[in-house]
Amino acid sequence: MAGQGNFDWAVPVMRTGYAGRALVYLVVAGISLWAIVHGGQGQSTSSAFARLETAPFGKVVLFAIFVGMLAYAVWRLLDAAFDLEAYGSDGEGIVARIGMCVTGLIHLAIGIGALLLVFTASSGGGESGISKAAGTVLNWPGGRWILAAMGFATIGAGFYYGKKAYKREYRKHLMGNEVTRRWDWLLRLGVLSQGFVVTVIGVFIVYAAWVYDSQSAGGLGDVFSWLSGQPYGQILVGLLALGLLCFALFCAVNAGYRIVPKASDPDIETLKGAFSQSG
């Protein structure tokens, strides 16, 4: 039975996008774990990509990441424009759809970074993309307040991930089948781990606005670095890397089994429904 409307074409774009997102987290978390086991530190996205650049078939993987991130960006923009996941047009729905546009553009930037490494040599690290963006914003009129607002919005997004994990709200977007039921606890852990990372990044951004220093803003690599300085830091870093591997699994499961309300059969049983019946 056809889905609601004529949006069937959006589903393969969505699945490609989530597959690309899964690949990104698999690469970053996998390389981070390898580094930790060998006495190193967790890796930022850019440093993980730079390591991948010199690996066998690394540039093929980088190009696949670019394709996936491009698809994810297109999916998010289409999702927001056509409200494919039925968030609505009230205040909360509009905020959710704006957030889709922002996350789409962020992932497009990640994809472009991967593509550049396919054709050019790595610069070997340097300032993170978030720090560079923070520096640009701080130079705007009222930039400190704009950056602080961005930081608080990022913290809010992190809390949203946490709420989604705590209440298992992600279940309503997934098909209920043996795969999703079996791995549900890992999916929950992955969403929670992503929420932690996003929240800490948001705190970094707010702090950068407070001290008026773009270098205080940072991304995943800075989260790993901050954790490593805590008691039992190396263990915490390893646990977070494992959690992000779970988030890679979450993205992969979404690639295979995510439900798009306006493009899927309305009779498909969700993971939420499957657990409700079993309960």
Rank of each mutant, 00 (worst) to 15 (best):
F119W: 11
F119K: 07
F119D: 05
F119R: 12
T120F: 14
T120H: 11
A121E: 11
A121F: 05
A121T: 11
A121M: 06
S122G: 12
S123L: 12
S123C: 08
S123Y: 00
S123D: 15
G124A: 06
G124H: 06
G124E: 06
G124P: 06
G124K: 08
G124T: 04
G126M: 07
G126K: 06
G126A: 01
E127M: 11
E127C: 07
E127S: 13
S128D: 08
S128C: 05
S128L: 03
S128A: 10
G129V: 14
G129A: 15
G129R: 08
G129L: 12
G129H: 05
I130T: 02
I130N: 02
I130Q: 00
A133G: 10
A134N: 08
A134M: 12
A134Y: 00
A134H: 05
A134R: 00
G135P: 02
G135F: 06
G135C: 08
G135H: 08
T136H: 10
T136W: 13
T136L: 15
T136K: 11
V137G: 02
V137N: 00
L138G: 00
L138N: 02
L138Y: 05
N139D: 12
N139Q: 14
W140Y: 09
W140G: 00
W140T: 11
W140F: 13
W140I: 01
P141Q: 06
P141M: 02
P141D: 10
P141F: 07
P141W: 10
P141L: 04
G142P: 09
G142N: 12
G142F: 07
G142T: 11
G143N: 06
G143Y: 04
G143I: 04
G143L: 07
G143K: 01
G143H: 05
R144A: 11
R144S: 12
R144G: 10
R144I: 11
R144L: 10
R144D: 10
R144N: 12
R144Q: 15
W145D: 14
W145N: 12
I146T: 13
L147N: 03
A148K: 04
A148L: 11
A148Y: 01
A149N: 02
A149V: 13
M150N: 02
M150I: 13
M150V: 09
M150E: 02
M150S: 03
F152S: 04
F152W: 09
F152V: 12
F152L: 14
F152A: 04
F152D: 01
F152G: 00
A153I: 03
A153G: 03
A153M: 03
T154W: 07
T154Y: 06
I155Y: 07
I155D: 06
I155L: 14
I155P: 02
I155M: 15
A157I: 15
A157G: 15
A157H: 08
G158N: 02
G158W: 03
G158T: 05
F159T: 08
F159L: 14
F159C: 09
F159W: 10
Y160A: 14
Y160L: 14
Y161H: 15
Y161T: 01
Y161N: 05
Y161W: 07
Y161L: 04
Y161R: 04
Y161V: 05
G162D: 01
K164N: 10
K164G: 09
K164C: 08
A165P: 01
A165F: 02
Y166Q: 08
Y166A: 14
Y166V: 10
K167G: 00
K167A: 13
K167T: 13
K167C: 05
K167S: 09
R168L: 07
R168P: 05
R168S: 09
E169V: 07
E169L: 14
